[in-house]
Design a protein around this nucleic acid. Structure first.
Length: 260
DNA sequence: ATGGTCGTAAGACGA
């Protein structure tokens, strides 16, 4: 069972790269973020033609998340609970019944939060509080659960090429990192760190100032695994080469192979 | 210290 997450930064600009990657990698479930599309205009058919079910939670112009899966989910939740007034499309969660029992996967696009000192940073922290509360409720099911997505948080200094450049950025604030750590400590594991503790394992390189060429990257896309998922984890990888494809997203896919 | 580049969707805004 191969589970992937990829912030594609606009489905319309990335549809060719996405379909090529789906055919190359053949994930069972792919979580997408920043589709930047409404549900009605998302190019479902070309993805369905590759054998995937498509569930979107979109909005006009910005944000938007999706779940692509070989098997149709039994149920789908759109939106993160805890604030009925929040209209930003940043969360979609599916539940699948497999031969090994239930599998729940969420595609998460956590708020960026810049600039500091504004309502955007407060929204980020409040959104993380809501995610923590919802994650706590999900853990009580004691299922294989993966919270996958663009967390817009750099967990540790070794997850950023140039830490000093990010000291005043919302992605590297103590409050952001502390909230992520509190979420993980409910009982999750950062899948990549179960298998590889090296520095310079990045998932994002800015389009500007030759960041990719200089390997000036950050690790902000994460797969958080419940205990039931941790014990069947086989491998984790970052599809770094995708960043050098034509018209790339500024993020690359991360993947986890689960047994059982 | 500043500006640098993208995507969406048709002018800013978000990142």
């Amino acid at each position: 069972m191969l589970i992937a997450s990829w912030n594609i930064n606009g489905i319309k600009a990335r549809i060719d790269g996405l379909t090529a990657w789906l055919q190359e990698r053949n994930p069972d479930i792919a979580c997408l973020q920043e589709i930047k599309s409404q549900d009605e205009t998302f190019p479902k058919k070309v993805i369905e033609d590759l054998g995937y079910h498509v569930e979107t939670h979109g909005q006009k112009g910005f944000n938007g998340v999706a779940l692509l899966s070989k098997e149709k989910p039994e149920s789908v939740r759109r939106g993160l609970p805890g604030d009925e007034s929040d209209e930003q499309a940043r969360y979609i969660e599916g539940l699948w019944q497999t031969d090994s029992g239930p599998l729940r996967v969420a595609s998460i696009y956590l708020p960026n939060g810049n600039p500091l000192g504004t309502a955007k940073f407060e929204y980020k922290l409040a959104w993380m509080d809501r995610l923590e509360r919802h994650a706590e409720a999900l853990l009580a099911h004691e299922e294989r659960l993966i919270l996958a997505g663009d967390y817009n948080v750099i967990p540790q200094p070794k997850d950023v090429h140039d830490p000093a450049a990010w000291l005043n950025d919302a992605l590297f604030q103590p409050e952001s990192r502390g909230n992520l750590r509190r979420l993980v400590h409910l009982g999750f594991a950062d899948a990549l760190r179960m298998t590889d503790d090296r520095a310079e394992l990045y998932t994002f390189w800015d389009y500007q100032a030759g960041a990719w060429q200089k390997n000036n990257g950050i690790r902000i896309d994460h797969l958080l695994l419940s205990p039931e998922a941790q014990i069947v984890l086989r491998s984790v990888g970052i599809d770094k080469q995708v960043r050098s494809w034509e018209k790339p997203s500024d993020h690359v896919p991360i993947l986890a192979e689960l047994g059982g």
